[in-house]
Design a protein around this nucleic acid. Structure first.
Lengths: 340, 340
DNA sequence: TTGAAAGCGCTAACAA
DNA sequence: TTGTTAGCGCTTTCAA
């Protein structure tokens, strides 16, 4: 019987036909996939753990690109992609335990996420995209430090010394405010921490006191939050000549806020992003482009080929500084004894 | 043992602790989700069948919105969302058989899709979004005929009589060309067929001979295809005053082509879309808005509550005509004996 | 070539 | 309160 469905060549066509016809007549709906999975020890699906709020994830083209790439890799391999229900608030880890999958892709979660811990307890291969960075685990992501270094270099060479930073959340607890040095160095999001550290290194090297550089954090990753962060930043530090954002989405918000205040970009204010989403390209945002589709694809392929490896693999994807129309030298300060 | 994991209240905390600790010491990774699913007859996941090419699906905000809504509904219910690997070309239906899910959501597939047939053979509840429309099955979608009727009415009242149509694919076979009457009426995509029929009814009522209205079809759903379709349409029928597109994505392409030809919209050419995606709103496209997020959410909830029903349910979502800056009365033809 | 049976790992019902 | 066992539906091995 099983043979009729799975091994057509192992029995006579005539018998196969008869078996299948009888099965249909009896209302047999075909082999049960779950029972088959139990027996064959193959679920035929890859789990995706994503603890960002879905509404923000689906509105960020960079995240959608990763998702698309992963879905493409799964499609190529003929396996399903199982989105694990998990949101930042919910502590319900059961969904991770319940997921019938052959492996997990973890996309951009904090190092202390309980869902992540649950994934790591599962006896299946796991690939991490972006963060966290865990010793001995497969990971795919850009070289954040180098990428941000390019941005910093660009700004320093333009002459910017008074800069401000807008970053995504640094921990699971909300802090829509300025960030202390402690919070920066203790950030649970590896990507954000690395980017801030790289900025600190680069600007310190240029003679800027990093302790004096304001960093504003936003929990939610939306254009509006980018705008409100820019407002908070510029209200407190109007002398800032460049706003460095750790994502294009936040940078789009900063651009909107600049316009609202009547600041021309880049003449009055320089704004930079990170990711290289289509809309950023369209408006000419100075940013770092990373190949998000490739990131998802690579992670999927890495996971699906993980049987063939023993040593953990970390794949670093290339990034490219894209200088657009939103960065320029800072405006020369009018000397007071010259002006009116 | 099972109780220790699943029914903490059925045994003493002390015993539970001891059992769990011993389990950990022995390297027991927790209950196997597949075996559990087999036993409980619950997979804890919803399947999503989407036979559109992923690259196009993820680039269309209307599709992403549906996906997001569905994912949200699943998250609320604590069940996973299983993307079934299926692309338009691939005839490999096995993935549908292999998916360990408690039900399917089918999103916008042709009525003769083999994957769809495979889904319908599975003994699990199924909800269809948009198409196909199958008697006796749960379905969620807008009233396409009424929605397109509003567009047609709007154009007729503006005075348009010479119109052209750009539509998405009408069958699984590629036909990037003009559409014959037979192909129109025999279209395997219910949504497209309905929209064309509604246009035929409305324009016929306004005294326009529908047989004389050119309809151009595109297999791939991209902005570029919209542009090439507009080119084909306007090259052959330069007298057209309005281009009706069955999606915003196609309309964006038509807009680009109009600009390329030096046609001002709406003075020289009226362009309309369908869906109401954010970018359409941003550029002021005249279109019909449909609540895509709600569509996905509603479908998910409908599926997850399908145990409580017996009669099939068809849910029609509201649509709204949004008149933007891309529609205006046709340019008055300069009478030859007046002009130069 | 065809049929029979063991057992995948779990849960739920029942026995002690 | 705790321990035992049948059986979910399949695949695969082995016997006929």
């Amino acid at each position: 019987m099983s043979n009729a469905y799975n091994r057509p060549d192992q029995l006579s066509p005539e018998l196969r036909r008869r078996v299948l016809e009888t099965a249909r007549r009896l209302g047999y709906p075909g082999p049960d996939p779950v029972a088959r999975s139990l027996r064959t020890r193959k679920a035929g699906a890859v789990g995706l753990l994503l603890t960002e709020n879905l509404s923000y994830a689906f509105r960020d083209p960079a995240a959608v690109g990763v998702l698309e790439g992963l879905a493409l890799a799964c499609e190529d391999a003929g396996v399903g992609l199982h989105l694990v229900p998990a949101s930042p608030g919910r502590e319900d880890v059961a969904a991770v335990h319940r997921a019938g999958v052959d492996g997990f892709v973890v996309y951009s979660v904090p190092d202390d996420d309980p869902h992540l811990a649950a994934v790591l307890e599962r006896p299946v291969p796991t690939v991490i995209i972006d963060q966290p960075s865990i010793e001995g685990m497969d990971r795919v992501g850009p070289d954040d430090a180098a990428a941000v270094g390019k941005i910093a270099e660009h700004l320093v060479s333009l002459g910017h010394r008074q800069v401000g930073v807008i970053c995504m959340r640094l921990a699971r607890e909300r802090n829509d405010d300025f960030v202390s040095a402690t919070r920066q160095s203790g950030a649970h999001f590896h990507v954000q921490r690395t980017r801030l550290e790289a900025l600190a290194v680069a600007f310190s090297a240029a003679g800027v006191d990093w302790a004096g550089v304001p960093v504003v954090e936003r929990f939610d990753h939306t254009v509006d939050d980018g705008a409100s962060a820019a407002r908070q930043l510029l209200d407190a530090y109007p002398q800032i000549t460049a706003v460095i954002c750790t994502s294009d989405i936040l940078a789009l918000g900063a651009m909107a806020e600049a316009e609202r205040r009547g600041l021309r970009v880049p003449q009055d204010l320089t704004v930079t992003g990170f990711d290289g989403i289509a809309e950023a390209e369209r408006i000419g945002l100075t940013t770092v482009h990373q190949p998000v589709l490739e990131k998802g694809k690579t992670a999927g392929r890495l996971l699906l080929s993980s049987g063939e490896r023993s040593a953990p693999k970390v794949i670093t994807l290339p990034t490219e500084l894209r200088i657009g129309r939103t960065s320029a030298p800072p405006r020369t300060v009018e000397e007071p004894w010259f002006g009116g």
